[in-house]
C-alpha cells in the first residue's frame, strides 16, 4: 500500500464513517454537519484521483451551498434541535437488511470483476486545463442544456416558494 492508497483509505474511512453518522444520529442538525464532513472527504478523494477541478466544485457546491441550504431548511421547518426518537425497530431492520443486501451485491459485482485492476494516475499538473478543454469542445451541448435545467429549477423554486396567488393579496 503506497502513500496515495493510504491517504485514499483514510479519506474513505472518514467519508463512510461520517456517512454512517448522517443516517443514524438522532440529532438532525448534527446529521447535516456530518454530511458536510462526508462530502468534504469525497472532495479529497476527487483530489487524489487527479480531478482537481471537481474537488473544488464539490467543496463549493456541496459543502458550501447544499449543506447550507439543508441547514436553512431544517431551521425553517423547525426541526427539533434535541434528540429525536429513532424509527421503529422493524423499520430499521428492514432498511438495514435492504442496505446490507445492496452493499453485498455492489461489492461482489464491482470487486469481483474489477477488484484486481490498477489505475495509473496521470502525473500532469494541468488536469484542469484538459478537463476544461474536453468540457467546452466535446460536451458543449449537454453543458448548455444543463444551464437551461438550472434556469428551470430556479424558476420552479421561486414559483413553489412564492405561495399561492391571491392568498396574500397579489
Amino acid at each position: 500500500m503506497n502513500a496515495v492508497e493510504l491517504a485514499f483509505a483514510l479519506l474513505g474511512a472518514v467519508a463512510v464513517g461520517a456517512g454512517a453518522l448522517v443516517v443514524t444520529t438522532n440529532r438532525i442538525v448534527h446529521a447535516a454537519l456530518w454530511l458536510a464532513v462526508s462530502l468534504g472527504a469525497v472532495a479529497g478523494m476527487f483530489l487524489l484521483l487527479t480531478a482537481e477541478l471537481l474537488a473544488w466544485v464539490q467543496v463549493l457546491i456541496y459543502v458550501g451551498a447544499v449543506v447550507v441550504l439543508v441547514l436553512f431548511a431544517l431551521m425553517l421547518t423547525r426541526a427539533p434541535i434535541g434528540p429525536t426518537p429513532s424509527a421503529p425497530a422493524g423499520r430499521l431492520a428492514v432498511a438495514g437488511a435492504v442496505a446490507a443486501g445492496t452493499a453485498v451485491v455492489l461489492l461482489a459485482a464491482l470487486l469481483g470483476t474489477l477488484g484486481v485492476e490498477r489505475l495509473e494516475l496521470s502525473t500532469t499538473t494541468d488536469g484542469a486545463r484538459e478537463f476544461g478543454t474536453a468540457l467546452f469542445s466535446g460536451w458543449v451541448l449537454p453543458f448548455e442544456v444543463l444551464s437551461v435545467l438550472l434556469l428551470a429549477a430556479l424558476v420552479g423554486a421561486i414559483v413553489l416558494s412564492k405561495g399561492r396567488r391571491g392568498e396574500d393579496g397579489r
Binding site: V16, G19, L49, A99, T102, L121
Partner: peptide
Amino acid sequence: MRLAFPLAVSALLFSLGVFG
C-alpha cells in the same frame, strides 16, 4: 492505485444512502 479502493468506498456510501 488499486481500483478496489474507490469501488469499495462508493459501494458503502451508496448502501448508507439506501439505508437512510
